[in-house]
């Protein structure tokens, strides 16, 4: 965490179920509205596009995999933050410990008869932001931090 001031912050606590995705989109829309009203940076919209792509992938991952099938629906916490030079997202759950692979890659596309239909969400998320980190907290939560800077957003 850095010490520079947060210009806008949006926090939502959701049940980790499919319908919660609508609330995640809504939170991202609120961040976009805050960014537009503050006219933070010309690269803001492009940066937010990358963050949005990554947030939806991680939220989907939490909904699908954090809690075992049949278990009571657990929590999905989302915090979005706007800074002068970047946007950040923090997602957390209380589900089973996750271990982020050291390297993420796209499945082989050369065999057109056996194209993969999934399994590349984390790769897309990683490619869409400048930083993507996962930590398992002492309190037993999975915590994801996603950072996308405005400078150089393409």
């Amino acid at each position: 965490m850095s010490d520079d001031p947060v210009l806008a912050g949006i926090a939502v606590d959701l049940p980790a179920q499919l319908q919660a995705l609508d609330e995640v989109y809504a939170a991202l829309d609120r961040l976009e509205a805050a960014m537009n009203s503050l006219c933070v940076d010309p690269h803001g919209p492009t940066a937010l596009m990358g963050l949005r792509t990554a947030v939806i992938e991680i939220a989907t991952n939490i909904i699908r995999h954090a809690y075992p099938p049949g278990a009571p629906t657990g929590a999905l916490r989302l915090l979005l933050q706007l800074y002068a030079d970047r946007v950040e997202a923090h997602l957390s759950d209380d589900g089973i410990p996750y271990s982020l692979p050291e390297t993420l890659f796209m499945p082989d596309l050369d065999d057109l008869t056996d194209l993969p239909e999934g399994g590349f969400g984390l790769f897309l998320a990683r490619q869409s932001v400048d930083q993507l980190t996962h930590t398992r907290t002492d309190q037993g939560a999975n915590h994801w931090r996603l950072v996308k800077h405005f400078a150089g957003s393409t």
């Binding site: 992938e57 057109l112 239909e117 999934g118």
Partner: peptide
């Protein structure tokens, strides 16, 4: 908006088409 699940649906359609 499209995510990886959406891309998967398009890939599935591509495979069926081919």
């Amino acid at each position: 908006f499209i995510d990886s699940s959406g891309l998967g649906a398009l890939i599935s359609g591509l495979k069926a088409a081919r």
